[in-house]
Amino acid sequence: MLLIPCPWCGKRPENEFRYGGQAHVARPEDPASVDDEAWAVYLFLRDNPKGRHAERWRHIHGCGRFFNCIRDTVSDRIETTYKPNEAPPA
C-alpha cells in the first residue's frame, strides 16, 4: 500500500485516496470546433510511461481535495505531490 503525502494532510495510507488518472490533461477550449481525432485524444489517450508519471489523486476519505503527484511507475516511489494550481516540477 502506498503512503501518499497529501499536500494538506500529510502522509496517509493509499486507501484514503482515489486515483484520478493522468494530470494536466487540458480540455479543448471549444469542444465543438475540434475534429473527432482531437476529441478522441482528449477522451481516451493517456500517457502510460514506464517511469516518471504525473497523476491526479483525490483524498476522498480525508480533506476531499484533488492534488497532483509525481510517481515512478516501475518502483511506485512517489517523488513529490503538489497542489492543483501549481506547475509540475521539472
Binding site: 500500500m1 502506498l2 493509499e14 486507501n15 485516496f17 482515489r18 486515483y19 502510460n48 514506464k50 508519471h53 497523476e55 510517481r71 511507475t73 516501475v74 518502483s75 511506485d76
Partner: peptide, 13 residues
Amino acid sequence: DAYTSYSQIGGLH
C-alpha cells in the same frame, strides 16, 4: 491496483 504501474507486484491490501 488503483494506479497505473509496471511493478508486476501490486499492493498486498
